[in-house]
Design a protein around this nucleic acid. Sequence first.
DNA 1: TACGCCATTGGACTAAAGGACAATAAGCAG
DNA 2: CTGCTTATTGTCCTTTAGTCCAATGGCGTA
Lengths: 201, 201
Amino acid sequence: MSQHLFIAPADIQSPRWRQAFPTAFFAHDATLLTHADCVWLLVHNDDDMHALQTIAASGRKIIAMTQIESGEQARSVLESGASGYVHYLAAASVLEQVAQVVAAGGMWLGADLMRQLVLATARSLPAAKPVNGKPVDLSQLTSRELAVAERVAAGKTNKEVARELDITERTVKAHLGSAFEKLNVRDRLHLVLVMSGRAVT
Amino acid sequence: MSQHLFIAPADIQSPRWRQAFPTAFFAHDATLLTHADCVWLLVHNDDDMHALQTIAASGRKIIAMTQIESGEQARSVLESGASGYVHYLAAASVLEQVAQVVAAGGMWLGADLMRQLVLATARSLPAAKPVNGKPVDLSQLTSRELAVAERVAAGKTNKEVARELDITERTVKAHLGSAFEKLNVRDRLHLVLVMSGRAVT
DNA sequence: TACGCCATTGGACTAAAGGACAATAAGCAG
DNA sequence: CTGCTTATTGTCCTTTAGTCCAATGGCGTA
């Protein structure tokens, strides 16, 4: 059974923390870290982000709590080593569930933010239109075409993509050409633009 | 308490399904849909994807199961309305946890795939860093360099930019080359990425 | 007057991109 | 078994991109 530690300023607290974990510890900084293997840290500024990275580096599970949920902050804390991201006023049942997922090695993110994350990736962006005004539909790409297209859209040359996917440059060109045709884009530059949801002028 | 329905071909089954949910239903297609409010669907081809969308549209929770986990497929199923994505051979305890998260209105994704998703959202990264990690500073470009760079970042060829600015293609290349050097980018593709505030991988 | 910066341009060159021809093999559905 | 799709690959070609040499002229400043 995990030992929980909640770290937050005195003026940002919730009774639901103790409700979910009656035996938890509470602190304003990381001094009680040795008592816990699951740390809930309120993240508000850069100092908190640094603390998050330090705690994550200690090998403990860390769950970031926030006052204002945002996709950018979610991504930032998860990239920095957090296994979860949740509002500090979340219900006790939600906190329990987050703890269970994280204790099992998983990651927890609210459904809305999860959808934002999903949608923020290459697919289903709000109508990115190529030059002829048709909407972009990445779902018509095969998995290989998508794999190539994503890497090119991230700025890689055909040679680099070939190396990464362990195929020849010729094969990369074949998939790319097919993707260009399906998405009706002119070249890799337009591909970057439409895959990032931006207008091509 | 949710009623579970597992839909998969006869040759792709797992005893752990019944272990996790002893009262679950099992089928090869969606005929038993009316018995369930939580559907586990093995996703393998486009027909399965269509079935997923249809079941999701029915308002039921749907969890996609796969034989080979991939970030691309994860995104695809989550975009199509699934609330979870898990390997069909996952442990019963994992299946139970997925069910709990989804029943609570959440979404479930394995930690590795979650990290992939997080890292894939290059768009809204706070600081766009080119290859050597220095921040982008467009103010060091001259007005002409900026004019050229903006047009190239909008997807235009050197010839098109030359025509628009009433200069030769050679001049466009000169300004572009200078902009590349000042912004420390490799080529026009990287220019697009850093000018739009995105990470170059 | 001299210097530095910017804008502009040319020639020449290599590398990369993209397309057009072609082909084989595997998997799947009918 | 057949037909289709996908993945992979080759050769050859043209166009585009980018860099390295070079140069002139305008403008502002010391």
